[in-house]
């Protein structure tokens, strides 16, 4: 479903080149639950950004659903992101001026869905993340855990095949962190492919496949049986 072939991502910092991803090969099947761990600066976020089409590889090829997406133009990339990818950020990235419902609606608005339909769909999704009582709250009227749940709602409202989460619990206390993890695990059980970058071994341990990164390379790739 997702396949990286010899993917590199270099950053030029002054006259130094940082190899944030160094010839990475990776295949991810539909419905997998993967954790990505590794020391700070090992390239976890860079990997996730590339998979989420938020960034482009310096070299190498990225196949998404059998389509080479490593050299697409802006508007094709936008369509791919819209249809296939849900992304959750450590810092939520909600639009502060919009209510929870409107934030969740935003991808549907961008996709040009009719107002009635998208409103119903956004309610449905907020219901699924347990926020049906907070539809009209703006982000500054929500707790951190609630904000992240709004962000999850927004990530899945387009029914993407993949959910990418970069330290989704990094800004949360352990209780709201657990709630967030439970929600995205439930989504995974319902069929979505899930990739979670985390520093928390407990959370990382819950995945069925564990990637370990170091210096821009994947140095560990283990599967555990049913948990």
């Amino acid at each position: 479903m997702m396949r990286l072939e010899q993917v590199c991502r270099d950053f030029q910092v002054g006259d130094q080149v940082v190899h944030a991803l160094d010839h990475v090969d990776l295949v991810i099947q539909a419905g997998e639950y993967i954790s990505v761990m590794g020391p700070s600066g090992s390239g976890k976020s860079t990997l996730l950004n590339l998979l989420g089409l938020l960034d482009r590889p310096t070299s190498g090829t990225y196949w998404l659903s059998d389509k080479d997406v490593s050299a697409l133009g802006d508007s094709e990339l936008a369509e791919q992101r819209q249809r296939n990818i849900g992304f959750i950020f450590q810092s939520f990235h909600l639009l502060p001026r919009l209510s929870a419902l409107e934030n969740v609606e935003l991808p549907l608005v961008l996709a040009g869905a009719p107002p009635k339909e998208r409103r119903a769909r956004a309610r449905e999704v907020l219901d699924a993340v347990g926020l049906s009582a907070r539809l009209d709250h703006r982000p500054d009227q929500l707790s951190g855990g609630e904000r992240q749940r709004v962000a999850i709602g927004r990530a899945i409202v387009m029914r993407p095949g993949v959910l990418l989460a970069d330290e989704p619990t990094g800004n949360l206390d352990s209780k709201s962190g657990d709630e967030v993890i439970e929600i995205i695990e439930q989504l995974n059980r319902d069929g979505i492919s899930l990739l979670v970058v985390t520093h928390d071994p407990d959370i990382g341990g819950r995945a069925r496949r564990h990637l370990v990164m170091h210096d821009g390379r994947i140095v560990g790739d283990e599967r555990t049986g049913l948990q």
Binding site: L54, S75, A78, E79, R81, Q82, L95, P107, L110, A111
Partner: peptide
Amino acid sequence: TQEIGLLKALGAKQTE
């Protein structure tokens, strides 16, 4: 800029 980045991440095109 951050807001624009978010909109792009959610599938907005440059022209939009």
